[in-house]
Nucleic acid binder design. Structure first.
Lengths: 232, 232
DNA sequence: AAGTGGTCTAGACCACTCC
DNA sequence: GAGTGGTCTAGACCACTTA
């Protein structure tokens, strides 16, 4: 039994079935790759391919010499797609626009200094602008860019191309971290997003770095009602 | 040149370097696997392994017969770990506790009916409880469970083990979707979380299904200041 | 119809860990 | 030191898609 087609998907499905059914209990060891390969009638490479993804899902833990075990505390792992705001808005069938509100060199506040790990005396480029969907405020972008780390930014004109979009095109695919939170609208945010002061707003904060260098940090404050959705 | 060690990581690093440097421009085609393998001095399998992950990152698009191209609009893809609340709280070094506030069969509101795709006349199990960290309110859990889809729930006693935790142990690793948003505290939420009415709260809503059957939906409302963080 | 990526195999060696 | 997962190889066939 159990020898479904010898594809790695079939092996993976069988592995998931055994975990779900409790046949392989949380915290328990599972057979070695070689044994599984023989049992399921496929090459060890195929078993390896199947188990690798299960491990990436967080369902099993693998260690050399020690073998693989079902995770004691399985973690749900969701993948979030974070598109450029223009794409996100146009995907909803709305017309996109961006209005620049500020573009100046300035000393960042302490919170930004900390997030970028910079000294207190470094002036950064501060850009603030509003993303609009069909003319309605969609998100407020408040960004700090280190011109030493991103020298091209001196020539960037953000009046039509938002920094959000410009950066994706200019410095693609660097590392970073993201934080999601809720935040009561300040007076300025309320004015920009045309919502009551104190309204509950969804906030995305991101720091982008290349190697050790922090390039930019941004705070996106979305208009009320925004939802970030994904499928597990 | 370029022939770093013939590991898939080296191949992938080289591929990423070429994308970043613009040598392979967005929207442009990249060499075929076989050509790359020859150029970099490794087996095609190794190139395939490297490119597969780059495709999963969303940086390139691969199609049979058509070859691979650098994505025109690279999407940032973040993976979020969504632990059980007990683990999340204990990982912060705080003492975890759960208090059950409600457990009753009831007709769900329209919004829940819609999310679970159920008729208006189906009574569901409604469970409300508070997760505490060192005695302070951490998150309010408001959950609806379909007893027909999860019959074991009839025997579950949620006074000490939260439904959050019970469900992970009982029906592990099913599919679902998640939504994140911000929400102004209602009177009841404010009382439970000990915050001002109208405070900006971070909300996670989740629907869990198995195959076609919707099992449960939950709304987790976090105390003010909560942040969900991840690394890209 | 043909070319590309997707996958499987059998064998091999290596890196890491635990005993 | 020995056993496990991690990876590479060379070759092969298949599935899909586009020309």
């Amino acid at each position: 039994m159990t020898d479904g087609a010898n594809t790695w998907q079939a092996v993976q499905a069988e592995v998931l079935r055994r975990i779900r059914s409790g046949q392989w209990a949380p915290g328990g060891a599972i057979p070695h790759e070689a044994d599984l390969a023989q049992e399921l009638g496929c090459a060890r490479t195929t078993v390896n391919r199947a188990l690798r993804e299960v491990a990436e899902m967080g369902l099993i833990e693998r260690r050399r010499r020690a073998g693989s075990r079902v995770a004691m505390r399985p973690v749900r792992r969701a993948t979030l797609d974070i598109p450029v705001l223009r794409d996100e808005i146009e995907a909803r069938g709305a017309a996109y626009a961006f209005t620049l509100q500020k573009r100046e060199m300035a000393l960042p506040p302490v919170s930004v200094q900390a997030r970028l790990a910079l000294g207190a005396d470094r002036a950064l480029l501060h850009v603030v602008g509003l993303h609009l969907a069909d003319g309605h405020p969609y998100a407020l972008e408040d960004r700090w860019i280190d011109p030493e780390a991103v020298p091209q930014v001196q020539d960037a004109d953000f009046t039509t191309l938002s920094p959000n979009e410009w950066l994706v095109l200019t410095i693609p695919f660097e590392g970073g971290d993201i934080a999601f939170s809720a935040h009561a609208a300040t007076q300025g945010e309320a004015a920009a997003l045309r919502c009551p002061e104190g309204a509950a707003l969804f906030v995305v904060e991101r720091v982008t770095w290349r190697g050790e260098a922090r390039l930019t940090c941004v705070r996106l404050t979305f208009a009320p009602g925004h939802r970030l959705v994904t499928v597990i």
